[in-house]
Simulated assay, not measured.
Amino acid sequence: MKTILCFGDSLTWGYDAASLGRHALEDRWPSVLRATLGGNIEVIADGLNGRTTAFDDHLAGADRNGARLLPTVLMTHAPLDLIIIMLGANDMKPWIHGNPVAAKQGMQRLIDIVRGHDYPFDWPAPQILLVAPPAVSRTDNAEFKEMFAGGDEASKRLAPQYSALADEAGCGFFDAGTVATTTPLDGVHLDAENTRNIGKALAPLVRVMLEL
């Protein structure tokens, strides 16, 4: 049995901008990844709306700081063979920081946490796959347009930053923007087809990393 943890935000949770609800379980990218891989694989989806890489955002009734939450998540689901981290879109909010270099530093912090965690029973740290989220796109949705002001340009620079970090840190890397685009309904989230595309596209890379 191989166990994969998908640690992300609303794109992993499955937020549906059309219904203002949640995509069907079978359409969310972690579920599609599991179905595409087949075999004796467990895929755990841990997505939280608004989650950042490593920065505080107190606008919801849940802690959105990924770095603060990750140690508990790792302990909850250990042992793990692979963790897939797709975060950074919410970092583009101007009141968070709106800077792709800061998001890269946040991802570095998450890598350090995964590799330095005190796992029970001397279990090894899992492999790490960094995923750059699809870039924020322009939208006529007034609230999201202001919420992610400047994010359309800043988020385009996330993939190069994450790719360089993955090379430096010895992690896997995938640019989800090569297979998925955000919906014009709010410029941030994914429709069912695009979230499915991410799950399908990750499967070959996961197979290589886990030697499946």
Rank of each mutant, 00 (worst) to 15 (best):
F7N: 05
D9F: 03
Y15T: 09
A18N: 08
S19W: 02
G21Y: 11
R22Q: 14
H23S: 04
A24L: 14
A24H: 13
L25F: 04
R28F: 03
R28T: 10
S31A: 15
V32I: 08
R34P: 00
T36R: 15
G39C: 05
I44A: 04
G47Q: 11
N49T: 11
T52Y: 10
A54R: 13
F55A: 15
F55T: 09
L74R: 13
M75G: 15
L82D: 01
I83P: 06
I84S: 03
L87I: 06
A89P: 01
M92P: 08
G98P: 06
N99F: 00
D118P: 00
P124C: 02
A125F: 02
V131T: 11
P134L: 09
V136C: 10
R138V: 14
R138I: 11
D140E: 15
A142C: 03
K145G: 13
K145Y: 11
E146T: 12
M147R: 15
M147N: 12
A149D: 11
G150H: 05
G150N: 03
D167P: 00
A169W: 05
G170K: 08
F174H: 09
V179W: 11
A180R: 06
T181I: 10
T181W: 00
P184Q: 08
V188N: 03
E193L: 14
N194E: 10
V206N: 13
E211F: 04
L212T: 12
